[in-house]
């Protein structure tokens, strides 16, 4: 028996919004420690890694490890049937071929359940070693989202250049070029608005705007984001989901022409 309950359906909707741009379907691996998801986008350029801890749920039970392959468009249809403040419970029997979503309104006057067929997905998992990055940038997630959106008007790629002075995001194309520089800030009063850089050595890498913009669909999950970079390895964009877990996106850097 698997059962996981969240007080707010809105959180699950945000998690789904954060992955459905990149993935059509995904396997949710459930164990007694929580729910994990790892999947590459269809072009295999980026990778999504989601972790939801068991203790972040209001109720969590997983008697046997279970992998639930879900079509994310179908899951979106079902979650649209929930109000954001409805409680959601995800349930499945061991070896089940379907999963049930139960939505309960705040006053319990409306209870609805939706059953969805599960899929057998043959997904390849990649082992990602813990790495010391040359630089790690912590910044407001809304600012990162804004920068990606603004720069994607100019070109298909963004150059991220990190030095001890700060971080520079640049893009160029037919209409011209754009540069956005962020300096480190020391605003202790508004910690969530700070930009901080842990720098071992300066790094400059180029990434596709299209993927960065997809990653920023996780912005509603967290007001902070971290960007971890080292030369010639994938960028890691991480959003901590408060009291529940995290979502990480990995993106291969552009190859030098």
């Amino acid at each position: 028996m698997f059962e996981a309950r969240l007080v707010s359906s809105g959180t699950l909707k945000k998690v789904l919004d954060a992955i459905k741009d990149l993935l059509n379907e995904a396997s949710f691996d459930c164990s007694d420690t929580g729910i994990q998801l790892q999947a590459m986008d269809s072009s295999h350029v980026s990778l999504v890694s989601l972790s939801l801890r068991a203790d972040g749920f209001d109720k969590y039970r997983c008697d046997r490890n279970l992998t639930m392959g879900m079509n994310l468009a179908s899951m979106t249809k079902i979650l649209k049937c929930a109000n954001n403040d409805d409680t959601v419970t995800v349930k499945a029997q061991d070896d089940a071929d379907c999963v049930t979503f139960v939505f309960e309104s705040k006053k319990q006057e409306k209870i609805s359940d939706y059953e969805m067929k599960l899929m057998n997905l043959d997904q390849e998992h990649l082992g990602i070693p813990e790495t010391d990055f040359s630089c790690v940038i912590h910044m407001p997630s809304g600012e990162f989202s804004r920068i990606c959106r603004d720069l994607s008007q100019f070109g298909e790629s963004v150059i991220i250049s990190c030095t001890k002075e700060g971080v520079r995001f640049s893009s160029s194309g037919d209409i011209g070029s754009a540069n956005i520089k962020l300096a480190q800030t020391n605003n202790i009063d508004k910690e969530e608005e700070t930009v901080s850089i842990d720098l071992q050595e300066p790094v400059t890498l180029t990434f596709a705007c299209q993927y960065l913009n997809s990653f920023t669909k996780a912005t509603p999950l967290s007001n902070r984001v971290s960007l971890s970079m080292s030369a010639n390895v994938p960028l890691v964009v991480e959003y901590e989901i408060p009291d529940l877990g995290h979502i990480r996106y990995y993106l291969a850097p552009k190859i030098e022409e």
Partner: peptide, 14 residues
Amino acid sequence: LFPQEEIGTYYTPY
């Protein structure tokens, strides 16, 4: 989109 390596070239499948 510009030429780009697959993410799988950086990590080992398991």
